[in-house]
Simulated scan of single mutants.
Amino acid sequence: MLEAEFDQFAREYQEQHAASIRLSGENPDFFARYKIDDVAATLRRAGVKPRRILDFGAGVGN
């Protein structure tokens, strides 16, 4: 897939995702941050303090 083609798919995905959560009053970045914070909190409760969390295979690779 050409980079320009991926960029088009990524833009369309972002637009569709934003539209699907619009009623929540939040944007996709809010939910991405929420997932990271939730995973980090779960790991901390288990005694693990991650330096990084990779959200693999989701969205457009932000």
Rank of each mutant, 00 (worst) to 15 (best):
F30E: 10
A40R: 04
L43T: 12
A41S: 15
D38N: 04
R44M: 09
G25T: 07
I21R: 02
A46M: 10
G47T: 04
Q16Y: 05
A46G: 07
V48P: 00
F30R: 14
E15W: 04
A58M: 14
G25R: 09
S20R: 15
V48K: 06
K49Q: 12
H17A: 00
L54A: 12
T42N: 10
L23M: 09
P28S: 00
R44A: 04
R44F: 08
E15H: 09
F30G: 09
R45W: 07
G59V: 07
Q16T: 13
A32K: 12
D29A: 05
H17E: 06
R33D: 09
H17P: 00
H17S: 00
P50Q: 06
I36M: 14
A58F: 12
F31R: 05
K35L: 14
P28K: 02
R51D: 13
R51L: 08
R51E: 01
I53P: 01
V48W: 03
I21N: 04
N27Y: 12
D29H: 05
R44G: 02
L54H: 14
K49C: 06
R22S: 08
E15A: 12
A58N: 09
I36C: 10
N27C: 05
F56P: 01
A41G: 14
H17D: 00
R52E: 10
A18V: 08
F56K: 13
I21G: 03
G25A: 01
E15P: 04
A41E: 04
F31Q: 00
R44C: 03
A19V: 03
L54Q: 11
F56C: 07
A46D: 08
T42S: 14
E15K: 14
D38L: 15
R33E: 01
D29I: 04
A46K: 07
R52C: 06
D55H: 08
I36G: 09
S24T: 15
G57A: 11
R52A: 13
D55R: 08
I36H: 05
